[in-house]
Nucleic acid binder design. Structure first.
Lengths: 111, 111
DNA sequence: TTCTTTTAGAACCAGTTGGTTAAGAATGCC
DNA sequence: GGCATTCTTAACCAACTGGTTCTAAAAGAA
């Protein structure tokens, strides 16, 4: 696993399945079974994705009977925002282009 | 290599050497030799990092005599900003905390 | 053309990643 | 206690990653 937090967070976000899990968690906490359902991979594979997300700080976990609930944590996202902030003069270069990009994603949310 | 752009970009950003290369490029275009100098790795290793960054769209390249110049490209950073935008209600949860984070990074810029 | 400088590619290696199946914990219910 | 349910861990495997060294290519200088 990556030693620094940024590497761990970017590494965790580099996988589409893990990003989809995070997107699902914006709609509320979920069990491993619920998070596994949409994917064509085994449940242990999802458990390992959850472990990667947890080690990156992107989720926290709790128990409810035999189930384990995953909860989205925002702090690593703030760390990414802070990193991007150092490059703002680049990506802010054209607000129009950014606005256009955001608009085009409205009907086509991130995976 | 990752098939989708977000995976490619996050994957490229997951390596500290590659982030350091990007940080260097904010101060201007640079040759492979200039980009290699600060690191304790071989020049071919840096060439491969540059290839990863180029395939993620984070840099473009040109020639100047025998040297090849790398140039920071902003578009993938906008894609990341757009992705984060879907989670803004989470990381915007506390502007104070974000401001604090940004302030704490002022004297300690991202690697 | 020949030589120098700069960078990329090839071949190799160790460690990591993401998947699998099978087995083992942890918790609640009867 | 015994049994279900839910999830994690272990063992394995193929593919990828990031490093190395050695060689080759591209461009300019002599």
């Amino acid at each position: 696993m990556a030693v620094d937090q940024l590497s761990a967070v970017f590494g965790a976000l580099a996988d589409p399945t893990r990003r989809a899990i995070l997107a699902r968690l914006t709609r509320g906490d979920a069990t491993v079974a619920e998070l596994s359902a949409p994917f064509a991979v085994s449940q242990p594979a999802i458990s390992r994705h959850l472990k990667v997300l947890e080690q990156a700080g992107l989720i926290s976990r709790s128990r409810r009977a035999t189930a384990r609930l995953s909860h989205l944590e925002a702090e690593p996202l703030r760390v990414v925002v802070a990193w991007l902030f150092d490059y703002r003069e680049y990506w802010e270069e054209s607000y129009d282009r950014l606005d256009g990009l955001l608009a085009s994603l409205q009907d086509n949310p991130a995976d």
